[in-house]
Amino acid sequence: MSLTTDEIKKIAYLARLGIDESDIDAYANDLSNMLDLMTQMGKANTAGINPMAHPMDQMQRLRPDVATETNQRDHFQALAPQTEAGLYLVPKVLD
């Protein structure tokens, strides 16, 4: 199976991932090779097999609905590239 450069561009956009125009062919080639490898799974008979998400099939634990985290807003915001008045700043979304 091989992916076209247009498909690579579409996937990259879905992932909001900038890739250089000059690298697109190489990614198309690498991903096509990866997909070829993955088609080997087609050989396995998986009829009636349940997908396995956790090695011990453990379920998510529940806990009482009580706040346990302390407020660390200042700590977290100190890491941000740009904040103002306790808010994270991004370029204008609406004109």
């Binding site: 992916l3 690579i8 996937i11 990259a12 956009y13 879905l14 992932a15 909001r16 991932l17 900038g18 890739i19 250089d20 690298d23 990614y27 690498d30 991903l31 990866m34 997909l35 991004v90 370029p91």
Partner: peptide
């Protein structure tokens, strides 16, 4: 902002796997 921040800061192998996983 998203596209260039991720594009400029992730290396080739990470990008390959993000693309593969997204697909």
């Amino acid at each position: 902002l998203y596209i260039r921040s991720r594009g400029e800061a992730f290396g080739a192998e990470v990008k390959r796997r993000i693309l593969m996983g997204t697909y």
